[in-house]
Design a protein around this nucleic acid. Structure first.
Lengths: 149, 149
DNA sequence: CTAGGCCCTGTAGCCGCTACAGGGTCAAGA
DNA sequence: TCTTGACCCTGTAGCGGCTACAGGGCCTAG
């Protein structure tokens, strides 16, 4: 009973960089298949499990949701995927990333403007607080009753 | 009993752009103070509540966590804040935003490289899938047993 | 024989909401 | 008068993606 038997979960964790609890969680939600068990009930993983787990980790690092990863894995598992399908998932995800970057950049600009207004030495009045209280709504569904503080 | 009595929660929601359930949630977690109630138990808000709620919404839009917002509100409530304190919170948050942008940009670059590898017309082998399976770990705590698929 | 290290299951918590279920209240219309 | 519908209430459960227990079992070394 040596290494050929399979990796215990702790070893999987070390090799893949995924937390033990997370591995069990992936099994519970069906992202990882249930491995076989040793006589005493311990999980024993093979090389294919490790490959799959690393796939999941890398996809997570690239910001894919577990649901998107399930989609990728379904394609892989079915051996029926076309490159075009995978490419499309990737491009969709890329569009999402670009949107997030654009959002954050807008945020950054606003925050920088606010910070620039503020010298930092004035006492109770602070232009940042003022801006947060007085800022106007971006989506004007309501008739703003001019609350400017 | 007209408008002077106070705004019911639905009106607060419309004027502030914050969901009714979210307003009640903010009350529960102590971000919003409990308003007075009408005879039948309905919440009745005043102009100060609306100002505060809008403050919270705008701060959330700028990506402040509710905990950070609690910090800002504590300063405001205590009337003892200095501009420097507020400015520091803002700068901290700004640093966080910049970090997130940098992260997403790295992600974007990797995803673009992967997508560029893939023409979309090859059948079962897909360079994106290959890349996800074969990518190397960024943090080499384990001695990679060369699983390259 | 005991101490430590690994493993197991199951549940609860995190954030910031959102979505019910199951009720009460009130005004307008038939 | 009855009913419909809009609004309000409380309380609980769910989302995603984990993480952190509690409370056990197993196995080996000293």
């Amino acid at each position: 009973m040596k290494a050929k038997d399979g990796l215990p979960i702790g070893e999987m964790s070390k090799q893949s960089g995924v937390n033990i609890e997370t591995i069990r969680y992936y099994e519970k939600i069906g992202v990882m298949p249930a491995p076989r068990r040793s006589a005493n009930g311990y999980r024993l993983y093979g090389a294919d499990h490790l490959k799959r787990l690393s796939f999941v980790r890398r996809s997570r690092e690239l910001g894919f949701s577990l649901d998107e990863i399930r989609g990728l894995l379904r394609l892989v598992d079915g051996h029926a995927y076309t490159c075009a399908q995978v490419r499309q998932l990737t491009l969709d995800h890329l569009a999402e990333i670009r949107r997030k970057i654009a959002d954050l950049k807008r945020l950054k600009r606003v925050m920088e403007e606010m910070a620039a207004q503020c010298s930092g030495d004035r006492a109770p009045e602070c232009p940042i607080i003022d801006a947060l209280f007085a800022g106007r709504r971006p989506c004007p569904t309501s008739k703003r009753t001019a609350i400017t503080f």
